[in-house]
Structure formats: structure tokens, C-alpha cells
Design a protein around this nucleic acid. Structure first.
Length: 877
RNA sequence: GGGAGCAUAGCUCAGCUGGUUCAGAGCAUCUGCCUUACAAGCAGAGGGUCCGCGGUUCGAACCCGUGUGCUCCCA
């Protein structure tokens, strides 16, 4: 077979993904192996794959593939979220482009369009996940609006309602005037903005012309004012007890009230109170029995109740009212002011606090077991620092606003009769049953119950994800649910810890009586090189699919994994992409080298001169395999990749292959060849979870494989403890090679110039085993042993061995060598002094652990040895 | 305003229960090599007041206090 010069990623990706899928490696059914389960955080159906998904899903794929190779029955469940606001917005936009106004259509017509849209575009993101190489069990793909899933959500609503945890009530909510729906607190993003603080004076209801001045950033809300409030201890206003003042422009008479909620230092110390449009004002209003005047329409324009500017947009009114106040003489001054303004997470418009009748879910009871589970590590958080965030939120949890004024989503299963009576049931029939039971006299007539118009918050369906993807609602005793639940690891971003993670834990305990997952791994946020969060609006997010096309999936996966420690942000840099590509190229070339030996192997050939390399490489494999297992256990995935990268590039390519490499056109021992292939295989196995395609490709090129022998399912071998002695010897050999090469460079020896090497050592067994490799690696024509100084040679010291390099063309500068040795000597003498100070210190000897003291003694002895060697060498120069 | 976290080489980060000589890696940098696996490479090298100050300890990058700077989350 002719090998291409480089790895052809596109071809390999298509070939292997199809092969894996066809072979059923992604598919999971319960068996007697232990399960390892991950439910993928379902992306929005409207979504397009971006860097965040790449990181998140690569991490999951690594965990799944590693578990697959470690004896687990792995199941990774894909799916999408119906994302009510986002999707509805997209569909509304699409309709507008078609010239259709949502207002003119019925609910059913709209939903028909929405479903069409979903069928057409909803699968795109899942297709894109294939490109990332994700080992997902596609037969289990779920959607949060599937029929069965829908039913589960309705059931949960009814159950919680019957338990008294869901109720209907008028409260201050966050209103999104563009989407025209309520939002939960978590869906509001606070941004710092440069506002203006307007000082407005209200005429007092007294004989004299007197005023009280308030400060506000939202002057348009003046029209809804129903009081002015000051602090009871504020002497400036003490005389106003029981007084009234007039709302500017309207001349509505409102009371001056006193409450210690007021911050005397802020503004003038006087606050205008608008109970309809500010949560704090609302609470003040409740306390003082103030009327509520709602001056805004649902689209953010002024309502009839405002009396002025009716139908104008709130921000236009803000400008206009400032002018009018100025004209009326009520505007005292304005100043620059920086404050936090809430924006809608979905539509990015400024949120209006608004009083409204909504459905709520009481969270107190649900939160208790969920908080306990995380605090006790029943559900483990990685990194653990997020436990604090979680505790803080769960400890101060508020009721959850679960209704949304949208059509796309699970419709709230509540019905109303003509008198406003409320019936909650799974179906309209059930609601009617209740109605008939309650009002038998009226029931004979046409039922005529009105179905609630609202749908449920998207997260009210997502919180059931880990259980409902295994068909909890229809068949709670089914084998899949029993086998796969609780799932093993949830991989997600810390920004949805409240939206989703916390609520899944609550739902798990409430409905399954069990946690939804054992561990949660929080990935970081993907940022650009300058540390800015990647976002559409900044345009700093690279085109992921183009990157995959250009550089290959493996290179992309390498680039996102090489610098993404758990919970820390990932700074993405195109340079890492190049590093990944270079690494893949390196392995490809190593494969070509080894493959080139295949036709030159000789059975039974003498190979004792490279035995050292084989043994050392085996020891390194065993050593690193242990380290890697530890790292995977702790989710130190980035470190794991670095470790394998270095093992392959440095240990295997730079050292091992160079040590065993035959000369040009020389034969290779069959035994060495087989051991090398075997080593290569083990390296590919360690790397496979990170870079699945290149590894599978090389696995099949370096050796003919039986059908079904694929790397993806090859089980990791068990390693014996590495031989410490051979590891130490390997390091010694590397040090020797580097030292001689360094000397060669410093003495301007050409790579082709050969040398003779004389060694004064006590470690004869080591040189016996390693001298042949050493000779070839430093281009020595001969290695000899000596017990005397060799004249006319370059002398160096490696550990405690003395080396003499004889080179025909070298000009020997003993001055430089002396200088170097003198420097080393000085250093080691200083070192001995510092160590002996320690050892002479009675307190140290008394307090330090025995092994620490023993270690210090050994350091001392080693340094003394080294000094002795250096002194001898120096005296001979 | 409340909470969490970070500060180590030019950059990104390791440094796990204080104890291998005031510290490691990758990338970047410098020098020399087109040595038939690989110039997407090879060989070699340089580079750090571990943010400042104070304390605990025989011993501190690591623990405590404090100052400074930065980031994130919540209100």
C-alpha cells in the first residue's frame, strides 16, 4: 500500500465515523458490564455548533471513549432542547420575512410553522456533532418536545400542583417587551451601563411654594408614582410627616411616606415610589398600602394609565419627558451615573419589572435534598469551588416563575371556567371531570373551559432530562432507566449551574428518589487570545466547521483540550491548532518509519544492543499509564493530553525510535519490530480518546487487523509496576547523550565528525547495556573505558562519571572547561554547606520526618561524590 | 452591596498533605543543522525578587494576616 505523505483527515474522518457507527460501537444496551452514562446537555434546536460546544462535547467524548476502553458499557445520549423563547423568536422572524404577522394567526397555525421549522433546521447541530467525532448513541436521540417527553412535563406539573408546590399569583416579574413574556431571574443579564441620574422636584402640597427633590434614572416611570419616600431619621425631611406632594406634569397628589429602607446618602435621600415598575418600590407599596398604576403596555409602550405619551416607546418617552420636565421647571439637574441594567438573555432588550399574574413553583422543599446532596459530595462537583456558588444560591432560593407568554413549548395544563374557577389535569377531559364534580349543575351545558394560553419555561422540561431520556414517565420500571440511572458524569458550563444543574438534582430526588448523576464536571468559558468571551456580537468566534474542514477534527480537538484545565477558562489560540496539526504529522511520520521496517525484518537476529531501549520504553509506558489513569480520575484532561503528547513525541519518537532505528537499508530484528508495533499500539490507545481518527487510522495501517479489531473498543492493558532501576538508567543515558552533544556543539564539531569516547566509571553494568546506543547517538566511532585522565581530550562530568572526548578536528580550550567545572564545583560546595546546616540543626533533625532526613543525607552524599569527581577532573586538566 | 476565585519565564499554565540545590512543562525566543520518518522537522541553549509587606516554622511558591491589581457569580 502506498502511504500518503500526510494524514488525509477528511477521508479518514468520514471512513472511521461511518465504520464505528455501522459496527454498533456507539450503541448501548444493558448487559453485565458496569454502565458509564452521560446525557449530553441538549443544545437548542436553533443552535449552530460553536467553540463552547466543541469544548463541552470533546470532553464528554474523551470520557466516554476512555470508559469504553476500560471495560464499561458506555452510553452517551444525544438530543436537543426546544428552547421556547429562542425558537419562537426565530419562527416569528421567519414569518415576518414571509410577510406574515404572528398576531394574525391562530396558535395551531403558528405551531404548524414552528414544527416545520424544527424538522428542517432542528437536526443541523446534531449532524455537526458527528463531525466532532462524538461517540453518541444516536438511536437514543431525544427532543424535549417529543410526545412522550411532553407528557412527562405535564405530569410533573400536575403532580407538583397537587402537592401544593405550584401556584398562580400576581407578582413583580421580569418582563421582556420584545418577546412579550415573563422571564425567570436567571434569564436576566445585568450589564453596567452609563445612565443619567435626573433630579426632579415635586411641588409640596403646602401654602408656600416648596419642593422635594428626588433622583431617578428612569424618569418615564414618574407617571406611575404613587408616593415619595424618605428615611424616618432624615432631619432634612422630618417636617414633611403627613404631607403630600404633586406628581409633575400630572399634578396627581401623592403622600410622602417614611421607611428605613431608604439610603439617606443616595441622591437627595428622597425616593419616588412606582410600585408597578420596580421590585423594591412594589414591596414598599405593599407595606404602605399604596395604589399601583401600571403605565406600560406589554410591548414597552406607555399605556392609557400613564395619561401622557400613550403608545410611545419607553425610551422615546424618557427623552421627551426630560424636555417637558425642564420646560415645566421640575428638572433640577442631571448627572452621569453608572448602574447595572437588566437585559433579556434571549432578546437582549432592557427588562421591565412588571406586575403580572404568573405560575410559580415553590422551591424551598425541592432545594433541601438537592443542597444536601452536593454539600455531602453525594453529587461531586469538579472543581469543588462551585459548591460554594451552589450553596449560596440554594440557601437563598426564591420561587421559580415557570410560565411564559409564548406558544412554542409545553402548554400549561390548566383550564378556567366562566367564573374563573381553576382546574389542573393532564388533559382537557380530566379538567372537565373536575369541573363536573365541582359544579354539577352547570356541567350539563357545554363545558366551555378555557385552556391557559401560556407555556412552561424551557428549563421546566430540561430538568427532567437525565430521567426522561430513559423513558421514565411511561415506564418507570424499565430496564434502561434502572441500568443507566443515575448517570455517571454531567459535563456542562458553570453559567448554567442554577438554570439546569441545580434543578436536575432537585427533579432527580423529587421524582426518582435518586440523584441524576454521580459527578459534575464544569468546563470553562471559551475566550479568545485577549481573554474576551467568544460571542456572536464580538465576532471573535472562529468558524468551527471551517476549522474542522481545514485542519481536521483531531487538530481541533487537540487545540481545545491542550489548555483547558477544569473550571478554568480556555483561551483559544489558532497557534494551538498548528501545534495539534504538527503533532498529528509527527505521528504519521513515525508510522511511516516503522512501517518501512516491515519488509526488512529478520527472525532470530541478534538484538541485545537495543534491549535497553525496549525495556526502558516498556517501563515508561507502565509509568505514564499509571499517571494518566490518575489524571483521568481527577478530570485533569488537559494535563493528560500533555502527558501523552510528551510520551509520544519525546520518549517514543525522539529517544526510543532513534535508539532502535536500524542504519540505512539495514535489517531489523523481528522481535524488535514486533515490540515496537506493540508499543505504538499502546500509545495510540492512550491517545485515542483525545484524537480518535488519527489513532484509529494508524492502528489499522501498522498491522493487518481482523474484522472487529478496532482501536475504539480495544481494552486498555493492565500494567505491572515500572522497573525503577531501568527508568533511572534511561535518564542517565539521556543525560550522557545530551552532555556529549552539547559538548560537540560548543566545540564546533560537525554532525558528521566522529569522536572517540573514553569513560571513567564505576557503573559498568549500565554501560554494558547502553553503550551501543550511546555510541550511535553521539556519533562515536569507539567507546573505551579508562581509569586515568586522557590527555588531549575534552573532559566533561556527567553525574559522577568522567568522560573524555577525543576529536580530530576539535580545538580544545581547557580554559572554558576549567571555568565550567569550577562553576559547578562552587555550586555543589554551596549546596553541601546548606544541606549540612540543615543536618546540623538539632530542631530539624528532631522535627522533620525520617524520610526527609534520609533524603537530605542522600543529597549530601551525592553532592560529595560529585564534588570529588569534579575536583579530580579539574586537577587533571 | 454580598459571595467566590486568581496573581509563578515573553504567553498559557503545572507545582497534589510546607522538605530533592529560590522552581517545572508546552508554546514563543536564540544558535547550528535540508543528518533519506518528519524543516509541520532535528540538535543544543538562554530566560523567573514565585505581586508588595509582615507573621508562623528548623524550613514557605505553598500556611496565616495585610496591601495592591485582576476575573467571575449574585443582588
Amino acid at each position: 500500500m502506498e502511504l500518503s505523505k500526510n494524514f488525509q483527515h477528511t477521508e479518514a474522518e468520514l471512513k472511521w465515523y461511518a465504520h464505528w457507527e455501522k459496527s454498533g460501537y456507539f450503541k448501548s444496551t444493558p448487559d453485565d458490564r458496569p454502565p458509564y452514562t452521560i446525557v449530553m446537555p441538549p443544545p437548542n434546536v436553533t443552535g449552530v455548533l460553536h467553540m463552547g460546544h466543541a469544548l463541552n462535547n470533546t470532553v464528554q467524548d474523551i470520557l466516554i471513549r476512555r470508559a469504553k476502553m476500560s471495560g464499561y458499557n458506555t452510553c452517551w445520549v444525544p438530543g436537543t432542547d426546544h428552547a421556547s423563547i429562542a425558537t419562537e423568536a426565530k419562527v416569528v422572524h421567519m414569518l415576518r420575512d414571509m410577510g406574515i404577522d404572528k398576531k394574525t394567526m391562530s396558535r395551531d397555525e403558528f405551531l404548524k410553522y414552528a414544527w416545520e421549522w424544527k424538522e428542517k433546521y432542528g437536526g443541523i447541530i446534531l449532524k455537526q456533532l458527528e463531525k466532532l467525532g462524538c461517540a453518541l448513541d444516536w438511536s437514543r436521540t431525544n427532543f424535549t418536545m417529543d410526545k412522550d417527553y411532553y407528557a412527562a412535563v405535564i405530569r410533573v406539573f400536575v403532580e407538583l400542583y397537587n402537592k401544593g408546590l405550584i401556584y398562580r399569583g400576581v407578582k413583580m416579574i421580569n418582563w421582556d417587551p420584545r418577546a412579550k413574556t415573563a422571564l425567570s431571574d436567571e434569564e436576566v443579564i445585568f450589564k453596567t451601563s452609563n445612565s443619567k441620574l435626573y433630579y426632579v422636584r415635586y411641588k409640596l402640597d403646602t401654602e408656600k411654594e416648596e419642593y422635594i427633590t428626588v433622583a431617578t434614572v428612569r424618569p418615564e416611570t414618574i407617571l406611575g408614582d404613587t408616593a415619595v419616600c424618605v428615611h424616618p431619621d432624615d432631619e432634612r425631611y422630618a417636617h414633611l410627616k403627613g404631607r403630600h406632594c404633586f406628581v409633575p406634569l400630572l399634578n396627581r397628589r401623592i403622600p410622602i411616606i417614611f421607611d428605613d429602607y431608604i439610603d439617606k446618602e443616595f441622591g437627595t435621600g428622597a425616593l419616588k415610589v412606582t410600585p408597578a415598575h420596580d421590585i423594591n418600590d412594589y414591596n414598599l407599596g405593599l407595606k404602605h398600602g399604596l395604589p399601583v398604576i401600571d403605565t406600560l403596555n406589554e410591548d414597552g409602550t406607555m399605556s392609557e394609565a400613564a395619561q401622557l405619551y400613550i403608545g410611545m416607546d419607553r425610551f422615546a418617552v424618557r427623552k421627551k419627558i426630560v424636555e417637558d420636565l425642564k420646560e415645566a421647571g421640575n428638572l433640577v439637574k442631571e448627572e452621569e451615573y453608572s448602574n447595572q441594567v437588566g437585559y433579556s438573555e434571549r432578546t437582549d432588550v432592557v427588562i421591565e419589572p412588571r406586575l403580572s399574574m404568573q405560575w410559580w413553583c415553590n422551591m424551598q422543599e425541592l432545594a433541601k435534598p438537592a443542597l444536601e446532596a452536593v454539600m455531602s459530595d453525594e453529587v461531586e462537583f469538579h472543581p469543588a469551588k462551585f459548591k460554594n456558588t451552589y450553596r449560596h444560591w440554594m440557601g437563598n432560593i426564591k420561587d421559580w416563575c415557570i410560565s411564559r407568554q409564548l406558544w412554542w413549548g409545553q402548554r400549561i395544563p390548566a383550564w378556567y371556567d366562566a367564573e374563573g374557577g381553576l382546574y389542573v389535569g393532564h388533559t382537557a377531559e380530566e379538567a372537565y371531570e373536575q369541573y363536573r364534580a365541582k359544579k354539577p349543575a352547570l356541567a350539563a351545558a357545554q363545558p366551555n373551559l378555557r385552556h391557559d394560553e401560556d407555556v412552561l419555561d424551557t428549563w421546566f422540561s430540561s430538568w427532567l432530562w437525565p430521567m426522561e431520556v430513559f423513558d421514565w414517565n411511561k415506564n418507570p420500571q424499565n430496564g434502561d432507566l434502572k441500568y443507566y440511572y443515575p448517570t455517571s458524569t454531567l459535563v456542562t458550563a458553570p453559567e448554567i449551574i442554577f438554570f439546569w444543574v441545580a434543578r436536575m438534582v432537585m427533579a432527580g430526588y423529587e421524582f426518582m428518589g435518586q440523584k441524576p448523576f454521580d459527578k459534575v464536571y464544569f468546563t470553562g468559558i471559551v475566550r479568545d487570545k485577549q481573554g474576551r468571551k467568544m460571542s456572536k456580537s464580538l465576532g471573535n468566534s472562529p468558524d468551527l466547521l471551517k476549522m474542522i474542514e481545514d485542519s481536521g477534527t483531531d487538530a481541533v480537538r487537540f487545540s481545545v483540550m491542550i489548555s483547558s484545565p477544569a473550571g478554568n477558562d480556555l483561551l483559544f489560540d489558532e497557534g494551538q491548532l498548528e501545534q495539534g496539526r504538527n503533532f498529528i504529522n509527527k505521528m504519521w511520520n513515525a508510522m511511516k518509519l516503522v512501517k518501512g521496517w516491515e519488509s526488512r525484518t529478520v527472525d532470530g537476529m541478534e538484538d541485545s544492543q537495543v534491549k535497553f531501549a525496549l525495556d526502558w520504553m516498556d517501563a515508561r509506558l507502565a509509568q505514564v499509564s499509571g499517571e494518566l489513569a490518575e489524571m483521568m480520575k481527577d478530570f485533569r484532561l488537559s494535563e493528560g493530553l500533555k502527558t501523552v503528547y510528551s510520551l509520544i513525541w519525546n520518549d517514543f519518537c525522539s529517544w526510543y525510535l532513534e535508539w532502535v532505528k536500524p542504519g540505512m537499508d539495514q535489517p531489523v530484528s523481528q522481535h524488535v519490530y514486533e515490540r515496537t508495533i506493540n508499543t505504538f499500539e499502546q500509545l495510540l490507545q492512550m491517545l485515542h480518546p483525545y484524537l480518535p481518527f488519527i489513532t484509529e487510522e494508524i492502528y489499522h495501517i501498522i498491522k493487518e487487523r481482523e474484522p472487529g479489531d478496532d482501536l475504539i473498543i480495544k481494552q486498555l492493558p493492565a500494567y505491572a509496576l515500572p522497573d525503577a532501576e531501568i527508568l533511572k538508567s534511561g535518564t542517565m543515558l539521556q543525560e550522557l547523550i545530551t552532555a556529549v552533544r552539547d559538548t560537540r556543539v560548543k566545540n564546533q564539531l560537525k554532525p558528521k565528525d566522529t569522536i572517540k569516547l573514553w569513560i571513567d566509571t564505576r557503573h559498568h553494568a549500565f554501560y554494558e547495556a547502553a553503550q551501543d546506543i550511546l555510541r550511535r547517538q553521539v556519533n562515536a566511532e569507539q567507546i573505551g573505558f579508562t581509569q586515568d585522565a586522557k590527555q588531549g581530550c575534552i573532559a566533561i562530568v556527567v553525574q559522577t562519571d568522567k568522560l573524555y572526548i577525543e576529536a580530530a578536528s576539535a580545538t580544545i580550550d581547557t580554559g572554558v572547561q576549567k571555568e565550567q567545572m569550577a562553576k559547578d564545583l562552587e555550586y555543589f560546595r554551596g549546596f553541601v554547606i546548606s544541606v549540612s546546616k540543615k543536618l546540623d540543626n538539632e530542631k530539624f533533625v528532631a522535627n522533620a520526618k525520617p524520610e526527609v532526613i534520609a533524603n537530605e543525607r542522600k543529597k549530601m552524599a551525592d553532592a560529595m561524590d560529585k564534588i570529588k569527581t569534579l575536583e579530580e577532573s579539574l586537577s587533571l586538566l
